[in-house]
Design a protein around this nucleic acid. Structure first.
Lengths: 349, 349
DNA sequence: CCGTCCAAGGAAACCGGTTGACTGAAACTT
DNA sequence: AAGTTTCAGTCAACCGGTTTCCTTGGACGG
């Protein structure tokens, strides 16, 4: 019999190593407040390894230590943006000795239920919240409970717990690109109102459009989905009374799905991409390269957002809160076939 | 002060209700082996509610009860197929009083590490494994440990723990549709070899193509990604020596991403969809309706797969294993613009 | 040579539940 | 009236760690 099938417990390790539970616990947790001979330390590690010892997380949590787990709450699993964030978070958490769990916070379904429960029930030490929005019941709950948490991507003003990317910069990058191609009328498909990145991106878009002296910079809001992008695109492309051509020659969307929906709408309207309308999406994901035409996007540092958020949360858990953080990596333009010089009369002024 | 900020403990509830810990525990867990006056029972529930009592999961787990949590292991978060499965699983788990956690089992990254750890560390009671593949180190680990688990989507022969969909039927549905339109040469883009649904779908495709008397039914394998679909499509569409036209007039892919990649490849080859090549994808997700052209798909009962898997796992955990399960809902064809009658000489024989 | 200090580790309480054995009182038998 | 059930709960051990104080034996200082 190679090994006993039951879990090895701390006491088993202690017994096999000829020391007490206390010693094993301290050694394995690398505590400094105990002096042990190097040889004893080595033996303990060896035995633990050999027995395949895994501390029981419940027991640890009970004994006052932490669970070494955090949970990432995302608004929509279907949004691939969050997948990248989640990977970053997971990886960094592992490096720090934590386990990162993933939970979908689909609007309303939960109310404030199961997520603060994750903490209340002692399953996790803290929350990474990517699903914050004004009025979310969870915010109320968090504000009067001591649960460590950080907000990522979507931020909560004044919380001092926001981890974000330079979203404003993404608007600038997209606009600079389109402006450089000669576009003078660019529409922006924003995300739902009230959500931080939506607002920030929109403000930055308007501000920079102004700075560049664009002729027109209309904005329409929509969900981060294909449908949301489709509806908004139709709105922005509707020719003004007395005209036959759309009022803009390019669209910048807030999400990749919106861009896909917008592209479908553009074609439905009998327009060509990029000849009649250029499209720039946001968040670069594999599918962008395979669309027709391949989609030019602004790549956001999603993975880094995930890692930075974990860093901030773990710091908070360990009692050294860090304040708001902005991921330093800048948005980057990924040039593909959905953008081109505008055609028609006023091509390049 | 509306309520004390500290967690209410079992003993607090007991004290407030004027009974013992044991009674509270038994009442709240709905145990039958104890008789209590209805009035006492009511009072306990009231007090627990009022105090916002949440049992500490670690303590419960320690005390020999279960953690009331399961984990879903999926091979790729980026694959939206699994999102639907995860939702079904999550929802059903909640209904059964369990919490469903999500973890990505990205190939090799983990080896057999953190997942059986989830159980070893007592974080979950069982695993929903959607990432099984031959030689996966986890399989070895599971076979000699008593961790409750079921395999979903991807099955393990002879395990008696498989929860699957009628994948074979999806090939039949797709082929019937294409055959009905007049196609006599259909290619299949299969998933990676060795993975159950890939093999099953491929076998069923070949068998049914034979039954229908198709002139040609070539198969190419590729990853479930856009690139995988793109490469496989090029292979299947390469004209035979001495000919100028592709050997097939339609493609049936194993995933939605493959279909997207295949569509891009088809266009790259200067062919039109659906006039020159029809495309049927697998798994119906929102984006399919927004592609160009909108993609005809075979919708699989993914949500039901998730719920069924949880049912099976919970049954296993509670000591009444159920054996292999096939979700009864049949695949359903969702007709869109990517399929049409084949053009050219032999349109309809 | 005796007291002190330090290195090395141990004993036991405790975390918050669960559980099976047990008990006191009331009700029912015979 | 005494014995037996049933009812309505209670007791206390236990789950597997962590942590706070102790203990002990030898080295060292004076």
């Amino acid at each position: 019999m190679p090994e006993q099938p039951v879990r090895a417990r701390l006491v088993d390790v202690a017994h096999a190593a000829g020391v007490s539970k206390a010693t094993v616990s301290k050694v394995l947790n690398g505590r400094q407040d105990l002096s042990v001979r190097p040889e004893t330390r080595r033996r303990i590690h060896e035995v633990a390894e050999e027995l395949g010892y895994r501390p029981h997380s419940g027991a640890r949590a009970l004994a006052g230590a932490s669970t070494h787990a955090v949970a990432l709450l995302i608004p929509a699993l279907a949004n691939p943006t969050y997948v990248t964030i989640a990977r970053g978070a997971y990886q960094r958490a592992r490096e720090l000795g934590y386990l990162s769990l993933l939970a979908e916070d689909f609007d309303g379904q939960e109310a404030d239920g199961s997520f603060s429960d994750l903490v209340q029930e002692g399953r996790v030490d803290g929350l990474l919240i990517a699903s914050a929005r004004p009025g979310h019941p969870l915010l109320e709950t968090l504000s009067r409970s001591p649960v460590p948490h950080v907000f990522l991507n979507r931020s909560v003003e004044g919380s001092g717990r926001n981890v974000t990317m330079d979203v404003a910069r993404s608007s600038v990058t997209a606009l600079d690109h389109l402006h450089g191609l000669g576009h003078r009328a660019v529409g922006h498909i924003a995300g739902p109102p009230g959500i931080t990145p939506s607002e920030v991106r929109k403000e930055a878009f308007l501000r920079h459009a102004d700075a560049l002296g664009l002729d027109a910079a209309p904005v329409a809001s929509g969900d981060f989905t294909e449908d949301g992008g489709g509806f908004a695109a139709r709105e922005l492309l509707r020719p003004p009374a007395g005209s036959a051509r759309p009022p803009v020659t390019a669209l910048y969307t807030s999400s990749l799905a919106q861009a896909i929906g917008a592209m479908a709408a553009i074609r439905d309207l009998g327009l060509r991409i990029p000849q009649d309308v250029s499209v720039v999406g946001n968040d670069d994901l594999p599918v962008a390269a395979h669309l027709h035409p391949p989609l030019t996007t602004v790549a956001m540092p999603l993975y880094e957002l995930g890692t930075a958020a974990v860093d901030a949360l773990v710091a908070t858990i360990e009692g050294r809160p860090v304040g708001d953080v902005v991921v330093p990596t800048e948005p980057r333009l990924v040039l593909r076939g959905s953008t081109a010089r505008p055609a028609g009369p006023g091509g390049t002024p």
